[in-house]
Amino acid sequence: MTRKEKYRQVRREAIATGLALAALIVYWLFAGFGTAYFLDGSIRIVGLPLWVVLGTFGTWAMALVIVVLLLRFVFRDMPLDDADENGGGA
């Protein structure tokens, strides 16, 4: 893998991670504040309002799903040193 390809992959991973963070923040805002505003705490799960469950446990679960998707479809295992291009020497 050339240096240019490595930088392209690192940039792709950084952009995907930033977009994942933005998606997680939007989910957190909707799940926590949106649910609290629109449902006013009328739905309860194990004694907790729905907005608490979605804003905490739901956000955690969504983060895990996003990480699995990033690992499966975006991130690649690659050497970061230039030993490949220099014939094996450092």
Rank of each mutant, 00 (worst) to 15 (best):
M1P: 02
M1S: 12
T2R: 00
T2E: 01
T2K: 01
R3L: 12
R3H: 12
R3G: 06
K4A: 09
E5F: 01
E5P: 01
K6S: 00
K6Y: 00
K6P: 00
Y7V: 09
V10G: 03
R12Q: 09
E13H: 00
E13Y: 02
E13G: 01
A14D: 14
A14V: 15
I15F: 06
I15C: 05
A16S: 08
T17I: 14
T17G: 07
G18N: 07
G18W: 06
L19S: 06
L19D: 05
A20L: 03
A22H: 04
A22C: 13
A22F: 14
A23I: 03
L24A: 11
L24S: 09
V26Q: 03
V26F: 02
Y27R: 06
L29Y: 05
L29V: 09
L29Q: 12
L29G: 08
F30W: 14
A31W: 04
G32A: 12
F33M: 00
T35Y: 03
T35L: 00
T35F: 02
T35G: 01
A36C: 07
A36M: 13
Y37M: 15
F38T: 08
F38P: 01
F38Y: 15
L39P: 01
L39S: 02
D40M: 05
D40I: 04
G41Y: 02
G41E: 07
S42D: 10
S42R: 15
S42F: 06
I43S: 06
I43A: 12
R44A: 11
I45F: 04
V46M: 07
G47E: 10
G47R: 01
L48G: 01
L48N: 00
P49M: 10
P49Q: 13
L50V: 00
V52F: 00
V53D: 00
V53Y: 00
L54A: 03
G55T: 02
T56P: 00
F57D: 09
G58F: 07
G58S: 07
G58E: 09
T59N: 03
T59E: 04
W60P: 02
W60N: 10
W60H: 08
A61C: 15
A61M: 12
A61S: 12
M62D: 02
A63G: 14
L64P: 09
L64W: 14
L64Y: 08
L64Q: 09
L64R: 13
V65Y: 05
I66T: 14
V68I: 13
V68P: 05
L69G: 09
L70V: 10
L70M: 13
L70T: 09
L70K: 05
R72H: 11
F73W: 14
F73T: 11
F75N: 08
F75H: 14
R76H: 15
D77F: 08
M78V: 10
M78F: 14
M78H: 06
P79V: 15
D81V: 02
D81N: 12
D82P: 00
D82A: 06
E85A: 11
N86V: 07
N86L: 15
G87Y: 11
G87L: 12
G87Q: 10
G88P: 11
G89V: 15
G89F: 12
G89M: 10
A90H: 14
